[in-house]
């Protein structure tokens, strides 16, 4: 049963990651924390892209709402993390529900552009609402619970939250709801005929994506001890979209792979040359030309080669 294999492999990966701090490299722990957060962010976007076929150009909005909400509640209002973090997720989800209500009436590029428009409004609010968000100076000095200020404990916290969130997303995507979403993606009209309210399904997916994006944002803000308006800007939305496409959008693990690859490439190329855009651009170009299904296509090709199923 393939599902059992997947489960074992995932559990093994989590255990392996949990052992990482034993290697003693502070840098490796920090970098992995970043990758985990981006993986969740990309995965949340893929609920929308991979499972409904709708591309969002504005996913950074929910990331930012989650990040700012958690940061502000922790710091300005001194709320405990146990309330701030869920509140961040709920608010991101609520905003996604409102925005989604308008967006799901549209499809294709019109859908994408409307998500972009809303996201830029969120950016505008973060920019201009200086008293609350710190404006373009950013919101720095986030107050973390003492037990999370250490990089190893924050890593474990992130690992735990991301693992649970990914498991939850897996369950959602493989539930009846998830399967219906795939049906909506494959044939919107026919799924409608069999009595599914396709618009409502897409709306639900939009809200789920926003909520989990908000969770990723909250983790991100706490990790950096700061949120900045750049985190809500459209370039950030483009970045996470690129992660999903790079990994492969019609697979559950694709976006995780894409997030890890793009983030690590960006980090490592910057270490070796100030012409990192050229190196990164060439690598991406090769991937696009050779692997039109994204990195996950490579995985399945290798699998096919070695005769595994």
């Amino acid at each position: 049963m393939p599902q059992r294999n997947q489960l074992i492999a995932s559990a093994a990966l989590v255990v392996l990651l949990a052992l990482l701090p034993l290697a003693g490299s502070r840098y490796a722990v920090d970098l992995t924390t970043e990758v985990l957060i981006y993986a969740l962010f990309a995965l949340s976007l893929n609920v929308l892209i991979g499972f409904t076929g709708n591309v969002s150009f504005g996913h950074a909005a929910y990331f930012a709402i989650g990040g700012y909400t958690c940061a502000i509640l922790l710091t300005t209002y001194r709320w405990p993390l146990a309330i701030s973090l869920p509140a961040a997720v709920v608010l991101a989800g609520l905003v996604a529900a409102v925005v989604g209500y308008f967006c799901v009436r549209l499809t294709q590029i019109y859908f994408a552009m409307l998500t972009l428009a809303f996201a830029m409004l969120v950016w505008g609010v973060a920019f201009k609402w200086k008293e609350v968000t710190g404006g373009d100076d950013g919101f720095t000095g986030i107050n973390l619970p003492a037990m999370l200020t250490n990089h190893v404990s924050y890593f474990y916290f992130t690992l735990a939250v991301v693992t649970v969130a990914i498991a939850a997303l897996w369950v959602i995507c493989h539930s009846a709801f998830g399967l219906t979403l795939v049906a909506v993606r494959e044939n919107n009209v026919r799924t409608g005929f069999i009595g599914v309210d396709t618009r409502r399904m897409r709306w639900a997916a939009f809200t789920v994506a926003g909520s989990f994006g908000g969770l990723a944002g909250a983790l991100f803000g706490m990790y950096h001890r700061g949120m900045y308006i750049e985190n809500a800007f459209w370039t950030e939305s483009a970045q996470v979209l690129i992660m999903v496409l790079l990994g492969g959008m019609y697979s559950f693990v694709g976006p995780i792979l894409g997030a890890a690859t793009l983030h690590l490439l960006q980090v490592f190329t910057n270490q070796y040359t100030t012409y990192w855009p050229t190196v990164l651009g060439l690598i991406l170009l090769v991937i696009v030309m050779v692997l039109p299904d994204g990195l996950i296509g490579l995985v399945s090709r290798v699998k096919a080669r070695w005769g595994k199923t």
Partner: peptide
Amino acid sequence: MKISAIIVAAGALGAG
């Protein structure tokens, strides 16, 4: 798994 291997390698590079 491949990724974490890269990370460990990168970390070891920094530690020496």
